[in-house]
Computed example of a mutant assay.
Amino acid sequence: MQRICVIGGSRYFGKILVERLLAAGHRVTVINRGSTLPPAGVEHLVADRNDEAALTAALGSRAFDVVVDQVCYTPVQAAIAARAFAGRTRRYVMTSTIEVYDPATAALPAVPQDTPVPEEIVDPAAWQVAMDLPWNDDAYLEAHYAEGKRQAEAVFARAGGFAFASVRSAHVLGGGAQEFTGRLAYYVGRIAAGEGITAHAQALPTVFIHCRELADLLVWATTAGFTGPVNACSDGPLDVHRLVAIIAARAGREPVLRTVAAGERASAFSFDRHYAMSNARAKALGFSFGHSADWLPGAVAETLTSEPSPTVRN
């Protein structure tokens, strides 16, 4: 049994994570702003993580074996958390994103298109941090989401005082109405209605992970001994054409695609740039992934029978 603190953890795979940790017998504390109550048996601390004094006061004299940070988007938030949890935890796990590898958002080393992107392409220990950028401006943060995540990782990697690991999640699907971004619901809705999906003619593959598989990986990361980044994605990269074919087959429709040229705007999972991740490091460390083609039809079925949920982002 470990004492685990989850920052966020009130929706989607964060909620599943908390339930999994409880089921495994851990003592769980959730910190959020109070809008959502955690499950029974979880200690609930109400604080705004952006307010360092309030966060420190809420923590009191508590200490934890592990902190899992589900909602860190900026280096400023990372710096506040690093100070608040200094001396309170031996391990800190941050949920990050595949978008740190997006070559459209940063100058990164080139990787051949047939080579899944390894973690070392973005080294948080070497990434430049700019704390004076307008990270508290919502529009700026939305436009610089990937850079905010890269710099947050960099702050934690240099903080010291605890072992740090980041989990770089692929595009998260599954869970029906709880689906995190609303993107699968968009695809399923249009395809089920016989409407077209815009796609690049030479669309490149990307990677996905089911919400429950990601929750399982985060539980594993709390007790694993690795540090640094690890990619979290199911086996079986998919390009948008294959993705649409799987959805259409499950929905009983014929796929309708409208082709756009490279550089033009297309639907959310159509990419004309390469950054499909490798999950080799997580496998070498002992985690076993499922295959996207195995769980995606079930995720589509969940979405077909669910009410739509608002679009959100992590």
Rank of each mutant, 00 (worst) to 15 (best):
A203D: 00
L55P: 00
E195Q: 15
L17N: 08
G8H: 02
V93G: 01
L257S: 03
G252L: 06
P124H: 04
E213R: 12
A268S: 14
R3W: 07
E179V: 03
P308N: 07
F156C: 03
A63N: 09
T29Q: 12
F64E: 01
A107R: 15
Q151N: 08
I191D: 00
V68E: 12
P118Q: 10
P124Q: 08
W220F: 15
G175Y: 04
A57V: 12
H171R: 15
M277F: 09
L17F: 09
F226Y: 14
L296C: 06
A139V: 09
V172M: 07
N279F: 10
V219H: 00
L184H: 09
G8D: 06
H241I: 07
A54P: 11
I80K: 10
W220E: 06
L55R: 01
Y73F: 07
A126M: 07
V240D: 00
I16L: 15
F164V: 03
D235A: 15
A232E: 02
K149T: 11
L173C: 13
G60Q: 05
Q113A: 14
F64T: 03
L218K: 01
G286C: 04
G87A: 02
R33S: 12
D272Y: 13
R168M: 10
L21T: 05
V28I: 08
P134S: 09
T227Y: 01
A125R: 12
R158F: 01
V66M: 03
Y12G: 06
P124W: 02
